[in-house]
Write a protein that binds this DNA or RNA. Structure first.
Lengths: 332, 332
DNA sequence: TTGAAAGCGATACCAA
DNA sequence: TTGGTATCGCTTTCAA
């Protein structure tokens, strides 16, 4: 910055102002400074700037995964709100590990973000502690809880799991299987919702639950479903904890010559874009990922800019909806 | 930090040392300091630390997308190398836009990263300029070039496109179509490779190229392929610029009752994990995404730690391989 | 509208 | 092994 100042024949403070508050500097000087900035390829040091101003223009975002398509829309929505406001998003991928999440939170807080956005509501006590201490707005997304750290927007996964079961039940299914992979907390809640609904409907789940500790992929859907069929050949419907497993199940049916939806109905979760393209199109529980991202980012922006004014509604349940398609119902 | 020092009854410098170089502090003091750090929930200010030490422990990574599965393995590999070394990765998603990339590079450089990792070799001249000025190691990945900014690891996409065509040709195909979506530079090169190979083989591509400006998804694969069939019903093989389009094409075939591979052979690109699960499994051009990420990160680490010692081989072509599966060849 | 001085929170160097 | 001092690059008063 000193170099730029020297070249433009002004003091360093003026350079700082020309960049940070251009309206406070005369046109003539600003032009000279801009020129100097350009020819010297000067890039302000964010670290020094943040240190001096105590405004870091950073928001920390923790996501459990980038692998599955779920967090793209979400992250994209967050960036679409925050970046235009001059806020940089630091993303940390914690791969569904509470420990990694704890570490990530600590690391991110080291950058003194102006807010934090977390996925899920299952942070460790230490994580919660650090976040409260940080004294910045915290948004937990993707799930709902009675004891939010601060703000919270999400959906009730147990209710979603139960709704999927009821949907299949109403179509006449009684042998309803559930496939689930790496049991992250939200998938576990969907599973619990499945179990609860089955119990309430007086249906047995014996041999109908396929679970794997490994992260899910399409192939696993086929493997898990094959096991179910071996144990309970009478199975007529499957609810999977995500769309990958649903797609894998669909492929497995194609492999076995099982007709979907006639011999097996399939409902996935998330409603990723390939659902509509499959043959038959996959029914799925659709979630408002983008809306959650947008709301989280906007709430933060309002707080930061409105100097602490908090949203009227600090907690939101965005719900879910079932997109009924050919994998559960024949077209009219 | 002052608070911690006061509580432990030592000077701030000693606290700094206890955290940064624990071996330089006596056991007694270190214990007291650790205790104080813990009870006060002290988290060091990364910004101040970086500013004072001129070691930021940051590496900037620019990716064109998070939506497609391609960059997960890659990013994961980078983090797996860098994080254990105490280096934080700042990721910026530029959504296949050169302008956004330029902005992202500028922003990331503002954090004074110790190195930069970029995807592709098509940065703007201004981007290249900024990167050179930064005076830190720069790795361009995913593609190869004769004029790298610094280090380079990737593969020749034109060669890969041509190889896909030759592979189909050797299986007896003559009407070979190509589907391509949002024309990022590497997809364009694969397209060029397709065109070149077709020319060299004396094959016409008239009506055989389906392109869309929109970002690709599975559904688009079906739409593009439908157009091809309408124009050239005699088509017997399709090479798609990525696996999503290949999967969409496969679904479209299922919809039309076209048998794969008998009536249509399909080869995708990237070899994402769902390829093996599809029915029939999708043949795809496999790329070494993980290896590229690992190498880039490791090279950077060596330079940073080896105080500037550069890799013996500053440029690497990792090649590609064709995974032949049921969408092009019947099982023996 | 511009500049001088103080300080953001930590680290490196030197001295004790 | 510990502490004092200057400094990293910039921004924020405050004064001119």
């Amino acid at each position: 910055m000193a170099d730029v100042a020297a070249r433009a024949g002004v003091s360093p403070v003026t350079v700082s102002r020309a960049i940070r508050h251009p309206e406070m500097v005369s046109d003539a000087l600003r032009a000279r400074i801009d020129a100097a900035v350009h020819t010297l390829n000067y890039i302000p040091n964010h670290l020094a700037s943040a240190l001096a101003s105590t405004r870091t223009h950073i928001v920390g975002v923790v996501v459990p995964s980038l692998t599955n398509g779920v967090f793209d829309d979400y992250l994209g929505a967050i960036q679409d709100v925050l970046n235009p406001a001059g806020i940089q998003v630091l993303v940390s991928n914690v791969r569904y590990s509470e420990i990694e999440e704890e570490r990530a939170i600590q690391t991110l807080l080291g950058y003194h973000p102006e807010a934090m956005i977390l996925a899920g509501v299952d942070q460790t006590e230490r994580s919660r502690q650090m976040l409260r201490n940080a004294g910045v707005p915290v948004v937990q997304t993707m799930d709902v809880t009675d004891t939010p750290i601060d703000l919270n927007i999400g959906l009730d996964h147990a209710a979603a799991g139960a709704a999927a079961v009821r949907y299949l039940y109403d179509l006449g299914h009684r042998r309803i299987a559930h496939l689930t992979a790496r049991a992250d907390p939200r998938a576990r809640r969907r599973h619990a919702g499945y179990q609860r609904a089955m119990d309430e409907l007086g249906l047995s789940t014996k041999g109908l639950v396929g679970a794997s500790p490994r992260p899910s992929d399409v192939a696993m859907g086929g493997e898990l479903f094959a096991r179910i069929v071996a144990a309970v050949p009478e199975v007529t419907a499957v609810f999977t904890c995500n769309d990958d497993l649903a797609l894998g199940t669909l492929f497995e049916c194609q492999r076995r010559g099982m007709r979907v939806p006639d011999e097996l109905a399939i409902i996935g979760f998330n409603d990723l874009d390939y659902c509509v393209a499959a043959v038959p199109p996959l029914t799925s529980v659709s979630t408002e990922r983008q809306q959650m991202g947008t709301w989280a980012a906007q709430a933060i922006l309002d707080i930061i800019r409105g100097s602490g004014r908090r949203p009227r509604q600090p907690q939101i349940d965005v719900g879910f909806s079932i997109k009924a398609r050919g994998s559960t119902v024949r077209a009219a």
